[in-house]
Design a binder for these strands. Structure first.
Lengths: 340, 340
DNA sequence: TTGTATGCGTTATCAC
DNA sequence: GTGATAACGCATACAA
């Protein structure tokens, strides 16, 4: 490969070197085109020699699709989000799409500018993992022919495709699990984020307890993360009556909570304190935590998205909310049975 | 905003509605253009009404830059990589670039196809966080005018910009730290990955020990991660003479190692066993680990990259390897002073 | 099968 | 300051 003046090689140059027309080059690199084997060889050789690569930007200009899919996400360094991106990028690549990740702060303004970017780059689809775009922004994307997929946003907006995890089911299950373990003083640890999906878990748990005649306190002392879990534990165990069962709406919260309960208040898990988390991040399986939690079927969700995107039918076809069942993961942070 | 037939709005339609020429529309959305305030207002109003957004693909076609930067990375769900992506996407966005993340398997073949994608999308730059692209692929990118930035790849290839962390310095420091703590039976836990940067840490530590007259065993039992750390600990503590000081080339390894040492062999950290990790991932600061480690100055690194990309000068300008100093983070996993 | 001509949405260059 | 026009690199309908 010869080193050229620093600019991209175009099809025309390949054509000249191969002694064929520009169209022949184009056809060689187009999937369902008809080229004779001999021309094809010549073109391929010339392309290799020149270091030619099809310009997807130009191709996307005339062709319908850019094959770009935007991922809107915040707090990427969080285990849950990171895994989501990991899986999403892999699956998207497997169907020939490429992921643009836009790191939003989750604030409305950030989300808005992110949504605008997605149409600037003519993304085929936008997958929203964090934040809640305004209906008008969503409408813009949709009217531009983009597919909009909202994950765990729960705002049942019609138009975009909604994918949710059955938080209510899981949270109710969590309550009964703690109850069955013999917990009598149960608390919920959530965050001030107010994410629809976190809120749903919190509310469903409280409701399940209420129906059972139990009033459970809810701690919300900061953003969704380890530190907030710590803070919640400090407050809960600083009270006169301390909990013997805690449902944390996120694994990260559960871990902060567990660490403080153990190290600062000498609680033993699960003997004196049962804890349940949510998400089943990698760390939940670590020996130090061994956390009972609910796994979000990220793999299935990603598969579903990919199937949606692979289908060439327009998204208009009334795609209702698709919901996935979280999978309970039994580990050692909940007492197997009630104490005598 | 009216709902149109599902396709993107183009400048021409805006021009028609605003009663101006296409050029006027273009100028309105071009930074250094001259438009009268009145035309500008009209165009903006029409654009808003139609839901117009500049097509960056088309813009990138005529203009020089696509403003796309590709991130080549594997194991995205790993805390270290995730944080890298988090910071990189943020900083890139702050200078008007957008990140395409390509999830490679790290294998040569995967890296190769990823590199090809970067030129397909005419990325302005490609940042390699995982895997080692072949020199010829790098040459292709460079000759196409792309900037290539290799992070912690250590293969001192001339051409691309190399950014490394001073692994040798840190590993040497780690050895003396353990020595000062009174450790006499020291081991290294690494992985079979053979990443240049991990290898450098491992070798430097062994060398520092050798110069000190000590022979340290190196455990390599699998990929870089928590499970491999566990396995390493099982083998180390299953021996006749067990270590009292361990240097793990990665925090994740250190955590797996620590958990097994404590829970399966009853070791107490740091009294009976001192452990040092590398990376300073979030979990290192968690109460259960409180791990002494070396922080990679990811923020400074990202700033440097952004400065590189923002500078319009061609990368030809002989950019030597830029190296960053890891920052020692003193926590509680190393005994403060030797036992009496 | 092959080549020619046209369109895709922008920006830049040029006259006005 | 404004408007026409020529690239930009590619795919494709059409004619050969």
């Amino acid at each position: 490969m010869e080193v050229r003046e620093r600019s991209f090689v175009k099809a025309e140059e390949v054509a000249k070197l191969a002694g064929v027309s520009r169209s022949a080059v184009s056809r060689t690199f187009t999937d369902g085109a008809s080229v004779s084997e001999v021309t094809r060889k010549k073109v391929l050789a010339a392309a290799e020699a020149l270091g030619y690569h099809v310009n997807h930007l130009a191709r996307g200009l005339s062709h319908e699709r850019s094959n770009i899919v935007c991922l809107l996400v915040s707090d990427i360094s969080t285990p849950y989000q990171a895994r989501m991106i990991d899986i999403a990028t892999q699956k998207l690549q497997s169907i020939g799409k490429i992921a643009m990740v836009i790191n939003t702060t989750g604030e409305p303004e950030g989300v808005a500018s992110a949504m605008r970017q997605t149409v600037n780059y003519r993304a085929d689809a936008v997958i929203v993992l964090s934040g809640t775009p305004s209906p008008s922004l969503i409408a813009t994307c949709l009217s531009n022919g983009q597919r909009v997929i909202l994950i765990n946003r729960d705002d049942q907006l019609s138009g975009p495709t909604n994918i949710v995890v059955e938080n209510t089911f899981a949270a109710t299950e969590a309550y009964h699990l703690l109850k069955r373990a013999g917990c009598a003083r149960i608390a919920v640890v959530s965050s001030t984020a107010g994410t629809p999906s976190l809120k749903a878990r919190e509310v469903a748990f409280v409701e399940a307890a209420r129906q059972d005649g139990l009033d459970v306190p809810v701690m919300q002392t900061g953003p969704t993360g380890y530190a907030t879990g710590m803070e919640a534990a400090r407050r809960l165990f600083g009270r006169a009556v301390t909990p013997d069962g805690i449902f944390c709406v996120t694994d990260l919260l559960a871990m902060g909570c567990m660490d403080v309960a153990r190290n600062e208040f000498g609680m033993s898990v699960p003997d004196e304190l049962s804890i349940i988390g949510f998400d089943d991040i990698d760390q939940a399986a670590w020996m130090s935590y061994n956390l009972t939690t609910f796994r979000q079927p990220l793999d299935s969700i990603a598969d579903h998205i990919v199937r949606l995107l692979a289908a060439e039918t327009l998204p208009q076809a009334k795609s209702p909310t698709k919901s996935f069942q979280p999978i309970p993961v039994w580990r050692g942070s909940v007492r197997p049975r009630p104490p005598r």
